[in-house]
Every structure is written in C-alpha cells, then in structure tokens.
C-alpha cells in the first residue's frame, strides 16, 4: 500500500489547504481505514446521540483492546495492585471525582482561551458538575463500601470448581501476556474543529478500568498537561480522556504539506485517517493501534 499522489485538480480536497475534514471526507477516510485495517470498525453509539451529518452506522471509528506496552514504572505499580487485600482489585475513581475534575479544570485554565474553544471549556465545566451530582448521595466518597465477594461460600467449591486437567493454567500462558494495559480507542468527528478527535479508555492487565490518573502515564509528557482532557464521550455516554483537537488541523496541514513536498501532487483524502493516526502516535507512543501500512 502506498500513498498515491496524483495531480488531478478535481481530486484536491480542502483538507490540503486547511488540514480540516468535511463529515463526508471523515466517512471516506474512515471507510478506507476500516477496509484496510481490520482491527478498526465503525460504531453507531447511542441512538439519541446520533449526529445527522454522519450516516447512522458510521458515527465514529473504534478499535478495542489495543495493547499498551509497559513503561518503566508500571510493572511495579501493577504488582502492588495484585496484592490488594480483600482480593478485589478496586477500580475506578471513587472518592476522587472532585479532585480529578478540578485538575482538568486547571488544565483547561492553563491552556488559555486562545487554544481552547468555548465548547471545550463548557464541556469541562459541565463535567465537573456531573461529578458533583454523582457524589450528591455521598456513597462514592466511601471507597471502603465496595463490597467484597471473596468470603461467599458458593455452597461448597465443588459447584464452581472443575476437575479439568485440560484447562491451561493461567500461569502457563506465559509472561508475554501478563502486565499489559489495554485501551478502547474511538475517533469521533469534531464539528467545531472539523477534524477527527481521539478518545481513549484504559484497562489494567485484568481488564479492570484504570484507576484515577493512571492513564496519564500512557500519554507523552509534553502533551498530557496541554492537550489531553477528561470529558464525556459524545456518542457513548461515559467520560474518558480525549486528545483535544484544537491543534489537529494545523498538524495535519503540516504533515500533508510534508508528504506533497514541492510537487504539484495531492494526497487522496482517503489517507487522512492513517496520517492522522501516525500523528496521534506521538502523543500516545505506547498504545499500539493499527495504522502502519506505509512509512512516511
């Protein structure tokens, strides 16, 4: 697969001058990604969140369980996680919602009005409100009330235990499969910036949602405090880290110009998502999603 560069004027899309995509072009580029990279598929999301400018069955792109390779400090952290008393890996951000949201608000303030659009600021502040509402009953403030089911006797272990020598013990599945985080990754179309927008939801090696700010380790340091925010997903109704699209068009424009170089050629818009994902890889270097069919 190679980038086809050709000069027919009618094929020149606006994205080559602006780095932005129309919804139609988002679908064209997404279709190409899905056709060539089978780990990606289209998603439709919640019906009431459908955007009319996109086909109902092509609202966003998704890939699940993308491995994220350990960073130096992670192995230790996960070993400790496995030693939780009570046997339950306690997950989620219970009791820390408020703090976390405050942190996001600070990030937003730090970024300043010049780089963040009004909609993002609004989303951040409404996110903060959600967290407050969620805590209203006070339940979430008490982390200890996550019930443990360890002590329950299921009428003798014979009910659940198998005498099954043919099941490979987990320990024999090999160290290679142990310790990797995974991410669900989605790409939505951001109307305000007319670019794709990336959302990531992380799990630990036991497929439990990452705790608190653990996801921050998986974003490049230079970006994590600048362009990554924690917001409500536009199609799926939960909140997760997202790479803010305020600089995407600019970056894409630069990449497209780099590819075209001094020639009169153009880049077919169908390659947009692959170029975009290449650019995003710099922000999430350890998350190994699929896009590499060609070298830039």
């Amino acid at each position: 697969l190679a980038l086809d560069q050709h000069g027919t004027a009618s094929k020149v899309s606006t994205f080559q001058k602006t780095g932005k995509l129309t919804p139609e072009e988002f679908v064209i580029a997404g279709d190409f990604l899905v056709e060539n990279f089978p780990s990606w598929s289209w998603g439709s999301g919640l019906p009431e969140k459908h955007r009319s400018h996109l086909p109902p069955d092509k609202q966003f792109l998704q890939t699940r369980n993308v491995p994220c390779y350990p960073r130096s400090n992670r192995a230790i952290a996960e070993n400790e996680l496995g030693e939780d008393e009570g046997g339950w890996v306690e997950t989620g951000l219970a009791g820390d919602d408020g703090d976390n949201m405050d942190a996001v608000a600070e990030i937003e303030v730090g970024m300043g009005a010049a780089t963040i659009g009004g909609d993002a600021a609004a989303a951040a502040s409404s996110g903060s409100g959600d967290a407050d509402d969620g805590d209203a009953d006070g339940d979430d403030d008490d982390f200890d009330d996550v019930e443990s089911l360890d002590d329950y006797d299921y009428d003798g272990s014979a009910v659940v235990e198998d005498d099954d020598a043919a099941a490979l013990p987990a320990a024999e599945e090999g160290a290679a499969t142990v310790g990797n985080r995974m991410y669900d990754m989605t790409i939505t179309y951001d109307v305000h910036y007319s670019t794709p927008r990336v959302w990531l939801f992380g799990y630990d090696a036991n497929h439990q949602p990452l705790k608190k700010d653990e996801w921050r380790e998986d974003f490049s340091e230079e970006h994590v405090d600048k362009t990554v925010t924690y917001e409500a997903h536009p199609h799926l109704g939960y909140s997760c880290p997202s790479i803010h699209p305020c600089r995407h068009a600019q970056a894409m424009l630069r990449l497209v110009q780099m590819i075209v170089g001094d020639t009169d050629g153009s880049v077919d818009v169908k390659f947009y998502m692959m170029i975009f994902l290449k650019f995003i890889q710099e922000i999430i270097p350890n998350i190994e999603y699929d896009y590499t069919a060609w070298a830039m």
């Binding site: 890996v89 989620g92 219970a94 919602d97 967290a131 299921y154 439990q208 939960y238």
Partner: peptide, 19 residues
C-alpha cells in the same frame, strides 16, 4: 485476577455520566 473462583466487580462510579 487472583485466580480465585469468585465473581469480579467493576467500579465505574467515576466514569459513568450521571446526568
């Protein structure tokens, strides 16, 4: 995750969108 035959629990209190 500790290789015990018991159910699992997933705590999503922070990520569900309450509104």
């Amino acid at each position: 995750p500790k290789q015990k035959l018991t159910p699992r629990i997933c705590n999503l209190s922070a990520t569900m969108n309450p509104t």
